[in-house]
Write a protein that binds this DNA or RNA. Structure first.
Lengths: 219, 219
DNA sequence: TAGATTGTTAATCGATTAACAATC
DNA sequence: TAGATTGTTAATCGATTAACAATC
């Protein structure tokens, strides 16, 4: 009964990165790669790559390295890119529309099947051939369509209510773009995106660099 | 000569989160908070909060806790929200326009002062009173305006070239939204945002949850 | 076979948590 | 003063790196 070893969050967060690099290698027609070569490209240690991959199984071959396509497909399976995940976007404001137009998600196997809003001015409008529907019709839509992930891109005061609704409809994944940490008393998986956090980290680093150069000048 | 202890990346990445929570407390007119109370709100340990804050100085008072406004302002200083950072956005496609409309940045002290694109159809158009300018005029613009951060939101094949240009113009911070890890041979601070990475992590977790529930059913 | 490179164990490093004396 | 809570040191835990035997 193979008690599956728990994969650490650090490893999980690196999976998409491996997937991206392997996708690039594939596009460059590189068929094999050693952990050493990959480590040089990615800027992490070869040891870490081997350690990470071995959490999921032995994908390589001694003396040879890794077959790029095979490894790419295996990581794809781990992430679930072939699970046919479906997405709906709630909130067709700037961020919602930007995400709706972001074709990269489709490349990763996530299919956008619906967009919802409450603004009558934009309901009926189409983005990449997907109609913006009224949020009131979401119950019916979810009843008739398998929906795996709801992307929440509404003003942050509306977020908790909408997230609650979405969870009660049985949607299992929420990707939250509101600048707040969403928590729900349901069995739902939530990924919070905090865009301005990244900007503030950048601010901090610029601040540090500035201080450092000021100090150097003084000396 | 106080050899400043190096702050760990883990702590730095948490700073914006503290700042957000303190901002919320301030809005709720809560004037003081203990590490214990804050830990309950944030879902991290009180010990970690005290440890983190003490990297930068003793902001609290024994027996009392932390003054919310004071702590908020101190963290603001650390992040540099009062440095008057200025931002330009390069690429006024969906993502660029969404970011331009994202007023949250202004709230955090980052001021958008210019938007650039090469599409003649949208040049001259205004977003929140800021005109979209032709990318060819960026040299002049940067000469006449202090620009701290360039947000790059162009198709990914154009990203390296534009990033290079931006760095040579002397802009010190790059916030990159292209799905690629940007590296430059200059003294520039880069924050790469990989939106679809977050989506893939969500995919992985849904995959795990699905497997688990399938196993439970079997038993 | 000899060379290369993995898979894996052991060592190190860093980050988190616990504990408590200092002090408001 | 007594109670509360910080600042800080020590202990633990987790993640990364190093090393090397296994093997292609």
């Amino acid at each position: 009964m193979a008690s599956e070893k728990k994969i650490s969050p650090a490893v999980i967060r690196r999976l998409p990165r491996y997937y991206r690099y392997l996708s690039d290698l594939l596009r460059m027609d590189i068929t094999r790669i050693s952990s050493k070569e990959l480590s040089a490209r990615m800027g992490i240690t070869a040891s870490q790559i081997r350690q990470d991959l071995n959490c999921f199984g032995g994908f390589g071959q001694q003396g040879y390295g890794y077959n790029v396509e095979y490894l790419y497909n295996e990581i794809g399976k781990i992430i679930g890119v072939n699970n046919g995940y479906t997405i709906i976007i709630i909130g067709a404001g700037n961020m919602g529309q930007a995400l709706a137009n972001y074709t990269n998600f489709e490349k990763r196997g996530f299919k956008l099947i619906g967009i919802f809003d409450i603004n009558p001015k934009i309901i009926g409008k189409k983005i990449r051939n997907i109609e913006i529907m009224h949020f009131d019709t979401i119950d019916e839509f979810v009843k008739n369509n398998k929906v795996d992930i709801a992307v929440i891109a509404v003003p942050h005061d509306q977020t908790p209510e909408i997230a609650d609704k979405v969870a009660r409809l049985g949607i299992k994944g929420i990707w939250n773009f509101s600048p707040m940490d969403l928590k729900l008393p349901y069995d739902v998986i939530i990924e919070n995106v905090h865009l301005s956090d990244g900007l503030m980290v950048l601010g901090y680093k610029l601040n540090e660099a500035r201080k450092k150069s000021a100090k150097n000048k003084q000396e």
